[in-house]
């Protein structure tokens, strides 16, 4: 789905003077949500950076009607909102805007339940790979080796494979996205809005404060994550997996930039040893191997039918 920049709404859905840090990926992401979904969107925001970015009431930096809610309850609250709108005939798109902790850790039960019930919502996990709002603590989505204030020598385990877990829920639409690829993200949001049922979009969002890089590098690092194969852009629709550009060119490892290019710009990885980097590479290869296996299985299925 091609996105025409001239056809995007001029309206700003994120006001100036909001309380985000310089270089914040969440504000970028929210602007794209507004551009993609326009005036129909209603946000549900569990505890996290985005609770604070709204700024000090009674003013609010989001030009999208927003319901804040306790950490664990975003998907459940959104379920209720969506049911009320359906019942009252209100034309709306309920969107959860939750962080990695609010998705993979404390909010996971409510998320899984809402997915199983097939609630008509778009759930966006805006993944900055740690509890940034409370001061950079490790989460289930912090990558292997990353320093946080609760993993001083680097996290021992890998990221929880959230998009794959959501694919396993057999919901109609799962996609990965990156704030470095706005067209891709906007197209995926618009596609999701047309699908009835539970939609999950996992948005990779490099955080200058928590990852220890210069705020001017947010987009560059987001793009490097994809170009090195650390983050893979794909969508899973009606049971079919499809790689999206530029990840669709990166199945062949030789086409990818070395992951060191991504790692070296981030203070959170500066203590990594050769062995740690090998471990990360192994993990990346495993992710790609899973994708390749799924694509091959799909191809075989297609041939036999």
């Amino acid at each position: 789905m091609a996105i025409n920049i001239r056809a995007l709404p001029r309206k700003e859905y994120l006001c100036r003077g909001n309380a985000a840090c310089p270089g914040c990926p969440e504000t970028l992401g929210l602007r794209y949500v507004g551009m993609a979904l326009g005036d129909k969107a209603v946000l549900v925001v569990p505890a996290g950076c985005s609770s604070v970015i709204q700024g000090i009431g009674p003013k609010n930096g989001f030009a999208i009607p927003t319901l804040n809610i306790v950490f664990a309850a975003a998907a459940a609250t959104a379920s209720g909102l969506a049911r009320a709108f359906q019942r009252r005939g209100v034309d709306a798109q309920v969107v959860v805007w939750a962080g990695d902790g609010g998705t993979a850790d404390i909010g996971f039960q409510a998320l899984s339940g809402a997915a199983e019930r097939g609630e008509n919502i778009i759930y966006i996990c805006v993944d900055n790979e740690a509890y940034m709002n409370t001061g950079i603590q490790r989460s289930g989505l912090t990558p292997y080796g990353a320093w946080t204030t609760t993993s001083h020598r680097g996290k021992k385990g890998h990221k929880k494979p959230m998009p794959e877990i959501m694919v396993a829920h057999r919901i109609p639409y799962v996609a990965t996205a990156s704030i470095g690829y706005p067209w891709d993200f906007i197209a995926k949001l618009r596609k999701a809005a047309k699908i009835k049922g539970f939609k999950y979009i996992h948005l990779h969002a490099p955080c200058p404060v928590g990852w220890r890089f210069d705020p001017s590098l947010t987009i560059k690092i987001a793009r490097l994550a994809v170009e090195t194969g650390m983050w893979i852009l794909y969508e899973y629709e009606n049971g079919k997996l499809k790689l999206n550009p530029p990840s669709d060119r990166l199945l062949d490892p030789s086409k990818r930039k070395p992951i060191e290019e991504y790692i070296k710009l981030q203070g959170r990885f500066k203590h990594l040893t050769e062995k740690d980097i090998e471990e990360l590479k192994k993990y990346v290869e495993q992710n790609w191997a899973n994708i390749r296996a799924m694509l091959e299985a799909q191809e075989k299925q297609q041939l036999s039918s």
Partner: peptide
């Protein structure tokens, strides 16, 4: 829902949505 935490949260969401 899948828990009481979600039961009250879902009821709350629906109430905020006008039901």
């Amino acid at each position: 829902v899948e828990s009481e935490h979600s039961a009250l949260a879902a009821a709350y969401g629906a109430a905020v949505g006008g039901a």
